[in-house]
Design a protein around this nucleic acid. Structure first.
Lengths: 121, 121
DNA sequence: TTTGCCTCTGACGTCAATGTCAGGTTTTAG
DNA sequence: CTAAAACCTGACATTGACGTCAGAGGCAAA
């Protein structure tokens, strides 16, 4: 598949796909004329990259972690596995923080609703 | 307290505090010479702003939500309360998404660890 | 009063992911 | 064959929350 279709399949812009390649996060085969061609498994790869971005990793960090995804069957480097574990923990703390924030918002909403009810007579 | 101490108390840079004021998120009294002076309750306010940023709200959205925090005892505008509720729901979806991502990372880590163990003979 | 730190405004710099445009080639549909 | 659509590289623009610097003034201690 060419870049346009990969973009359509993943919902990621063509520009971003080229950027991922530039950052070493995504590879492509090139046709004789230089056009990028992708195998179907790249769809999952792109989705993984997006999930990592959503989890707050930078492109540099994603590239450090990729070996674990790419070759779980070869000997994964200590560094990559350790990095991934660290990011997992960071994410976990972030989630806990967001949950606390959500609780605070819930309390705030409840207070406002309550006061509204008391005004409505 | 002056801006430097508020910065120290909250761990937020002086630059950021001025930025918050510029964005209408934070107010200050000014001395005759123009220096900003803050009451102690501004510490909590700044922390709230930071939590909202961490939850993914932009400064514009934070300012829409602030009436609910500022005057829970007055009649809060429908718009602000509705906005806050929407942001709470968005945050909730985001948390769910991050948890799925964390689960995916856990599975990946487990796979890699497992393979390592099998290689170690 | 001088020293040194804090503050002021205003402006420009940064960073990451992406948008957008230009100018040119390739592929596809009719 | 030809026009439209998709692709290429390269480069500059954008956004938001700041960092940083310049030039000037404010304020407490020695």
């Amino acid at each position: 598949m060419r870049i346009g279709e990969l973009a359509a399949q993943t919902g990621v812009s063509v520009r971003s796909l080229r950027y991922y390649e530039e950052q070493g996060l995504l590879t492509s085969d090139r046709s004789a004329s230089g056009q990028r061609h992708y195998t179907a498994d790249k769809i999952e790869r792109v989705r993984f990259i997006q999930r990592m971005y959503a989890a707050g990793l930078s492109s540099g960090t994603v590239s450090e972690v990729l070996p674990c995804v790419e070759s779980p069957s070869e000997e994964t480097s200590d560094a990559a596995l350790e990095r991934m574990t660290r990011e997992r923990d960071r994410l976990s703390e972030h989630i806990a923080d967001l949950i606390r924030t959500r609780d605070a918002l819930d309390a705030l909403i409840a207070t406002n609703r309550e006061h509204r009810r008391s005004l409505r007579v």
